[in-house]
Every structure is written in C-alpha cells, then in structure tokens.
C-alpha cells in the first residue's frame, strides 16, 4: 500500500513541477496545489499506513484497548493544510490583483520591478 501511495506522490510531484514551470501564473498555482498536496501525502506515508482505530481512550479507561493510529502525522497534515490553504488563498488574491492592475498573468511580461536595461544605458 505504501509503495502505491509513493508512486502517486511521485506522479503528483512530477505533474506539479511541470505545471509550475509554465509562465502562466494560473498554471503555476495549479502546480503549487498539486505539490503541496504531495507534501502532505509524504507526511501521511511517513506516519506509516495501518488499519487502526482513532486514538481516543474510551470512557473509564486509562489507556486505549487496541492498537490506535498515529495521531501526530494527521495533526501535522491538518496544520499544513490550513497553512497551505492560507498561502494559496493569498497567492490567488495576489494573482487576481496582478491581472487587474497589470493586465497579464504571464510572468514573462512582468518586468516592472526589474525593467530590462534600455539600450545605451550604463
């Protein structure tokens, strides 16, 4: 099961990187989504895949009765998802603002901050 998931991660990373290399910012965003989910899956696999119950101790017990799932990777993934969600939302807002202000989402045409040198200058 782990190896299957690892293959999935590999494909996601490959597709994500391919998309991120495009000069279109929307493609970049989609690549980013794929890549961040691949990263989440890496943590998920790192916590080992087991068939077990949620790590909750039943009422009146001191310790769980049967083997429980590792809760830590899930907590980390949830945190990573929340953060990734925030960053992605922010980036999306930025791309939208860029499109409104600059009229393009092609990064090759964005030369405002670093204008190409004019002929005969220094």
């Amino acid at each position: 099961m782990e190896s299957a998931l690892v293959l999935v991660i590999g494909v996601m990373v490959a597709a994500g990187v391919y998309l991120m290399l495009a000069s279109n910012l929307l493609c970049y965003l989609f690549g980013l989504i794929l890549l961040s989910n691949a990263a989440n899956l890496v943590i998920f696999v790192a916590g080992r895949l087991t068939r077990a119950v949620p790590p909750l101790i039943p009422k009146g017990q001191e310790a769980p009765l049967e083997p429980v799932a590792n809760a830590l990777p899930q907590a980390m993934i949830l945190t990573a998802i929340v953060i990734g969600f925030g960053l992605l939302a922010f980036t999306l807002a930025l791309v939208v603002a860029c499109y409104r202000e600059l009229g393009t989402i092609d990064s090759d045409h964005m030369r405002l901050a670093e204008p190409p040198p004019k002929r005969g200058e220094h």
Binding site: L32, R111, L112, A113
Partner: peptide, 24 residues
C-alpha cells in the same frame, strides 16, 4: 505586485521542500 509575485512564487517552493523534508 510584480515583485510580490516573484517573492511569493519562489518562497512557496521553499516551504514545500521544507514540508517534504519534515515528512521524511
């Protein structure tokens, strides 16, 4: 906005690398 896009784009890649490293 232009400078911001470039800053954001490259720094997000960095965070994803870090996240994968943490997983490993």
């Amino acid at each position: 906005l232009d400078g911001g896009i470039k800053y954001v784009a490259l720094n997000l890649v960095s965070t994803l690398f870090m996240l994968m490293a943490i997983g490993m």
